[in-house]
Computed example of a mutant assay.
Amino acid sequence: MTLNTPFPAPTAAQREGAPNVYALDSDYAVLQAVGADALTFLQGQLTNDVAGLPADAARFGGYCTAKGRLLATMAYWRADTEEVPGVRLLVRRDLAEALVKRLGMFVLRAKVKLSLTELRVFGVEAPQTTALTEVAEAAGAQLPAQAWQRADLDSGTWIAAPAAAGASPRWWWIAALDQLAGNAAALAASAAADAQAWKAADIAAGLPWIQASTQDVFIPQTVNLELVGGVSFTKGCYPGQEVVARSHYRGTVKRRMAYGVLAETPPAPAAAGVDVFDGEREDEPSGRIVDVAGAAVLFETPLAALETGHAPRVGAPDGPAITVTALPYAIVPQG
């Protein structure tokens, strides 16, 4: 048996005392909505408030089908120009193009243009004080410390990412090619191509990133979207809003997303969308993997299954066990 840890070992590119930088372009993409109606259009599409988004902040949210099932989750922020309002959205790359097309179906007469940008996406962690200094020098200013706060600098957009308790400060860094100059260019050049450690930190923070293999599977509450601030119950209508609101106000959410670490390496790689078994019922799966990176796993499961004390299993009733670990927020049963 090979015991696992949730975070892969640092790569050779990650110097002691230096920032850990990850190239995320292969996993994430940035969309944009630009135009006079960009805010109002997205206000009527996403689960979270867009119209009231502060200029110095980002938010997490989702995009649902009419039946309330998630087609995407995203971090989004204002990206206005002098002429028109704009919003940028960070999403999983494997669903980005389809998302632009689907949202475009509902533009109708709204003055908004949707497109996939060529912006670079990095993840940056500062495990030590010396790393904080180096990141600030590369960014060109002190960076926000509170999760979801944002700074637009000459080096690009920096968004403070949520993290597990006691974890290192970290940021999403989104930049155009012409912003990667000077110290920023050196920081980007140090990026590790293998971003598993960054994704594992997202998982430990309990962020439910929907990807192509998990589209149209989960309603927002079953992946804790409202627990990470990704749902507004007062913003008004959006696709699936009635289903999401009914589940919230009637207290019918009996399934949640949990976090754990694989106790051993599976014979076949664990992947998003793979079945999870609760250890008691061997005839059928009880849930599915939402996201996985190395040994770190987010999985959707009945709350009752978590209360049994039986280790969940991946892929089969006798598959690799998941050691359930606390999320940085409480999973509170409704009702």
Rank of each mutant, 00 (worst) to 15 (best):
N48C: 06
A321F: 14
S155M: 10
R256Q: 02
K235W: 14
V231R: 08
A200W: 02
Q215Y: 10
F60D: 09
L89V: 05
Q334L: 14
A330H: 14
F218R: 06
A201V: 11
T265I: 09
Q32C: 09
G61Y: 01
S232A: 03
T308Q: 11
Q179A: 03
N20P: 09
T5I: 11
I159D: 05
Q142I: 08
G287C: 08
T129I: 13
A38N: 01
D278K: 07
W198Q: 10
C64W: 08
L108Q: 02
P85N: 04
L53I: 04
D178E: 15
L227R: 13
E83Q: 13
A79H: 11
A271L: 11
A176N: 12
R120H: 06
G309H: 00
E97S: 13
R78N: 09
D178S: 07
F7N: 14
P6T: 03
T214E: 08
A181I: 08
P54V: 01
E83I: 05
Y76Q: 12
I331F: 14
V30A: 01
V314C: 03
A79S: 09
M257V: 04
A36W: 04
A66C: 05
D25Y: 07
A110C: 11
D37S: 03
L207Q: 06
A12F: 03
T222I: 00
V231Y: 15
W77L: 04
P269R: 04
A316Q: 01
D154N: 02
Y249D: 01
G61S: 11
P54S: 07
A23H: 11
A295M: 02
A268T: 11
A151E: 13
G319W: 14
V112W: 05
Y76D: 06
K111V: 15
E134V: 10
A164V: 10
A268V: 13
S213L: 09
L187V: 04
P333A: 04
Q221I: 07
Y238C: 04
E307F: 01
A321E: 04
E280T: 15
L95G: 00
G279S: 05
G123T: 01
A204W: 07
P6K: 03
D278P: 01
T265F: 14
G86D: 06
P19K: 06
G68T: 06
F218G: 06
F277Y: 15
F218W: 05
V50C: 02
V332S: 01
N4E: 08
P6Q: 02
V21N: 09
D25R: 00
D178Q: 13
D178N: 10
L132N: 12
E264V: 11
G315Y: 08
A188C: 09
R109F: 15
V231G: 14
D80C: 00
T117P: 14
L306M: 14
V253N: 13
V223F: 14
G309I: 00
A316I: 00
R246A: 00
R78I: 05
K254A: 11
E125N: 13
